[in-house]
Structures are given as C-alpha cells and as structure tokens.
C-alpha cells in the first residue's frame, strides 16, 4: 500500500513506461494492482488510461450480467465491465470503495477501444521483476485462465496478472449479440 488511492486519482493518467512490453506472457515491469473482494490483480500500466470514481452507469439491456452498461467519459461513451461479476465473485456494491479503471484494449480485429473496469479498490503501482512471476497453473475445466498472464508473489500475497485485451475476446463479443 504505497499510495492511498485518493492520491492515485491525481496521478492518473499514468505516463507509459517503456520498460514494459505487451507480449502474451507476463513480463517484468510496472503493474497497477487492485482488489476484487479479497483477491488481488494486476494490469500492465501501459494499458491504463485513468482511474475514475464510480459514476452513474446507463445499463444496456440484454447484455451479459458483467457488462454493466455505458458511461460518459468526458464526452466519449465507453462500456463498463464489472470484474467481480466477470470472475464470479460476489457482487458487492459498497459504493465508497468502488472505482473504475479505464483501460485501452486492443481487440482481435486490431481496433483499439477504451473500456471501464469496476473494481473494489485500487492498490498501488508496483515494479514486478521477472523472478517474481510464475505461469498460471492449469485448473482444467474448473477455471478458465486464458486471460491470466501469470501469477506474481509479492510480499507473501499472490497477484494475478491480467491480459486485459482478452477480457473481451472475439467469442465474448459475439456472445454479446442480443440473441442470448
């Protein structure tokens, strides 16, 4: 907990760190970590545009439950995903601690767009070195780990590093069609 989250708002948007790359496997570099319930996750800072407070979201009907809707980000409309629902964690609506991480994702068709991720709380930006990263174990059919790049063990806790581009993969996108 290097930085209290309030301050983080002011530090965003984070300037891109050239040390990190966006290769499919997790590599050493700077990660923004955040909390979902009692689990901790990380996203490469390069992907992060800004962090905003939770604000009114307009729901879009007939979408999977983890797609909360759209919100107005300074005149741009961006979709918002609730990561807790997406990962099957309980949906706690403790508004005080909720915030939205805005990330830039590159979709498989090479279009890049921004999406908002609802998380419980943003923790800090940390440097993760290569020897702290382990490949994600295969849980078989129990758990889909395709969007987990690796696991980092920092100070006794485990942080799952996310491949945020794959949160909305082609399959998920087509599943968003109204015929659900």
């Amino acid at each position: 907990m290097a930085l209290p989250e309030r301050n983080l708002y002011r530090y965003m948007p984070i300037v891109a760190d050239t040390n990190t790359t966006s290769s499919p496997t997790a590599s050493a570099g700077k990660y923004l970590t955040f909390r979902l319930k009692n689990e901790s996750y990380g996203i490469v800072v390069l992907k992060i545009r800004e962090i905003i407070r939770l604000q009114p979201i307009t729901p879009v009907p007939q979408m999977p439950s983890y797609i909360k809707g759209v919100l107005n980000l300074r005149g741009k409309i961006i979709p918002v995903i609730d990561l807790r629902v997406k990962f099957g964690l309980q949906d706690i609506t403790d508004a005080d601690h909720n915030c939205i991480i805005v990330v830039k994702i590159d979709l498989p068709n090479r279009v890049s767009s921004q999406i908002g991720l609802i998380v419980d709380a943003v923790e800090e930006v940390i440097n993760i070195s290569a020897n702290e990263i382990e490949a994600a174990p295969d849980f078989g059919a129990v758990l889909d780990t395709s969007f987990i790049l690796g696991l980092a063990k920092i100070k006794g806790s485990v942080k799952a590093l996310l491949d945020i581009d794959r949160i909305l993969t082609e399959e998920t996108l087509s599943a968003l069609a109204p015929a659900i």
């Binding site: 879009v60 759209v70 068709n109 968003l176």
Partner: peptide
C-alpha cells in the same frame, strides 16, 4: 455518439447521447 465495438452487434440501438445531466441515454 457511437456505442463502439463492444455493442456493434446490437441492431436495436443506433448509438448513445449524453443527456443534459451528463448521463448517457441510449
């Protein structure tokens, strides 16, 4: 405003607009 890639399959929404109070209306 366009709804973007995520909702491009939706034929029932033409887009979205920002209403007077800053909220999004579909």
């Amino acid at each position: 405003k366009a709804l973007g890639e995520t909702f491009k399959q939706r034929k029932d929404f033409a887009g979205a607009a920002i209403l007077g109070d800053g909220q999004v209306g579909l």
